[in-house]
Simulated scan of single mutants.
Amino acid sequence: MYELNLIGIGTGNPDHVTFQGAQAIRAADLILIPRKGENKADLAGLREEIIAQVTETTPQIAYFDIPKRRAEDGYLRGVDEWHDSIALRWQEAIAAHSQAKQVALLIWGDPSLYDSSLRIASRLEPQPKTKVVPGITALQALTAAHAIPINEIGAPYLVTTGRRIRDEGCPAGVEKLAVMLDGECSFQSLQMDDYDIWWGAYVGMKEEILIHGPLADVAQRILDTRAQARADHGWIMDIYLLKKRGN
């Protein structure tokens, strides 16, 4: 039996790794690193850089390919089947290194906020003992980069996805919302004159890009900047915060 450690590594800046995270990396016998195609090779490279920075002797690394997600049977079913496939890749990689007792994955952001690593880990057979090392989230990095608090005094905020914004709009009574996992810039579906936006891509990394202003004024700039950055790097990670104007 092995122990599985899901280690939050922040948003791409090696300095985001906590002392606890560094200790967990050093304690690992085996680290699994996903590959997502040639255009995203630098994501694996960043993980390798972090490992090299915090270890004197590099632990054994096993690479696995992330399967493509199917969408033809609906979003939720597609995600469910995708997680099954990823769990199988984990299991195959671990089985090929059966001597490993401490297995780790370096998770972008935090394994317990808008990440599916814990759901995937629950599908492993037999079930390992799973530990989570928390990391800096994209939401924390975004608000820090813009030097703003996410909350208003005594007021709630919503963390949601681009898909839900696109399909349902902004829920009634919500004045401030953080939007994650939005590959289609779903803020375009809102009444843009009603919002201010704080947008960031590659937040916390040397490639960091930040844009802030009235949504109606900066929306096209965000679209153009995002498209160019994706073309330049072959991938993009971005997040944004919306606030209703006049509140």
Rank of each mutant, 00 (worst) to 15 (best):
V179E: 13
A22Y: 05
A178M: 14
Y195Q: 09
V218E: 14
R245G: 06
L88Q: 15
D115T: 00
S116H: 06
E207N: 06
S112D: 15
R230Y: 13
S112V: 03
G234Y: 09
D238F: 01
F187M: 02
A178R: 01
W235I: 02
E168M: 08
M192T: 02
V179G: 04
V54M: 07
L32I: 05
P134Q: 09
I209C: 11
E175H: 04
A155C: 08
I211M: 06
I197Q: 07
A93V: 04
I61A: 11
S189K: 13
V54L: 05
A28K: 03
S189T: 11
A201F: 05
L32E: 13
A138Q: 09
Q102H: 14
Y2M: 06
L43M: 09
V133I: 15
A145S: 10
A44W: 03
L241D: 11
Q99V: 08
L215H: 11
L158P: 09
C185Y: 14
L139Y: 00
A87Y: 00
V17C: 14
E3L: 07
Q99C: 08
Y240E: 00
A93W: 14
A121S: 09
L210C: 04
A227D: 13
I148V: 12
V132D: 07
P67G: 06
A227L: 04
M205W: 07
L241K: 01
T161S: 14
S116Y: 10
F187Y: 12
G200F: 14
I51N: 03
D196Q: 14
L124M: 12
E92G: 03
G204S: 02
A62S: 10
I107T: 01
S189Y: 15
Q188W: 15
G246L: 10
V17F: 13
Q220K: 10
V159P: 12
Y2R: 09
I150V: 08
L223Q: 11
A100E: 07
A231P: 06
L113C: 11
R221H: 04
A141C: 02
A95W: 08
K36G: 01
H233R: 12
D196C: 12
A28F: 12
G200C: 12
G8I: 07
I31T: 06
L105W: 14
T11I: 05
E38T: 01
I148E: 04
Q127S: 09
N247I: 09
I107N: 11
I222E: 12
G213P: 07
I50E: 05
D115E: 13
L113N: 01
P171T: 04
D84V: 00
A138I: 07
E38A: 08
K206G: 00
G234P: 10
W82Y: 14
T18Y: 06
N151G: 07
N39V: 00
E92W: 06
L215Y: 05
R123E: 08
L181Q: 04
N39M: 10
H212A: 13
R221T: 01
R26W: 08
P134S: 09
M192H: 05
I236E: 10
Q102V: 09
T225V: 01
R245A: 02
A178K: 02
S112M: 11
R77W: 08
R230V: 01
K40W: 13
V103E: 04
R47M: 06
I7E: 12
A27M: 10
A27I: 02
